[in-house]
Design a protein around this nucleic acid. Structure first.
Length: 183
DNA sequence: AGGATGATATCC
DNA sequence: GATATCATCCTC
């Protein structure tokens, strides 16, 4: 399977988020190929989006989000869970898509529903910060059996502090999929 | 409903 | 250097 081209990520973040649904996330590590189908995502639009980490500006932690598209933004949350994002839009923009849940396809032990569980099942950690997703180690590819996807829009999870941005429908998931992290 | 657990941003 | 906060998950 072949990684999606960088041009896929160099587009409107909401559009990329919706099109990521149904794609395969693949991680090759020590001869093991882990594969999960992306079934739930959230879009973080940029510094004007008060729920996005980039709303505080460029910091050592968020700089990769401001960098070129098609790279991984991985961070530690609540001291124990990793979350993985895909950087979108042109260099300098500061936007990304959070991957929230996978449907296990291959070599995924336990649950991959929820951003922390997803990273645990995929063996993703801070060593993947800034990883180029247009390579052959950690990347996203088309589902060989891709069919039409029915998309549900909901407010994002865990961003109640973000005022009106907390209510915007920027969380997307595949309707009826049993691996969604929350209804 | 509450605790774990550490990086990060923001203050002094 | 101290402290409040956090795009979560597990256990009770």
């Amino acid at each position: 399977m072949q990684a999606l081209p960088r041009s896929f990520y160099n587009r409107d973040t909401t559009l990329v988020a919706r099109e990521l649904l149904g794609k395969y996330l693949i991680h090759r590590l020590d001869g093991v190929e882990r594969i999960g189908k992306i079934v739930e995502v959230e879009a973080y639009l940029g510094p004007h989006d008060l729920a996005a980490h980039t709303s505080k500006g460029i910091t050592p932690r968020t700089q990769v989000m401001f960098g070129p598209p098609g790279h991984a933004y991985v961070y530690l949350i609540y001291g124990m869970h990793h979350c993985m994002n895909v950087v979108t839009e042109a260099d300098g923009t500061g936007a990304a898509v959070l991957l929230r849940a996978l449907e296990p396809i291959s070599n995924l032990p336990g649950s991959a529903s929820g951003p922390g569980r997803l990273c645990k099942a995929m063996a993703i950690n801070k060593s993947h910060y800034g990883q180029d997703l247009c390579g052959s180690v950690l990347f996203i590819a088309e589902d060989p059996d891709a069919g039409p996807v029915d998309i549900v829009e909901r407010p994002r999870i865990g961003v109640d502090y973000a005022g009106e941005w907390a209510t915007k429908p920027l969380r997307f998931y595949i309707d009826g999929n049993p691996y969604i992290s929350r209804k």
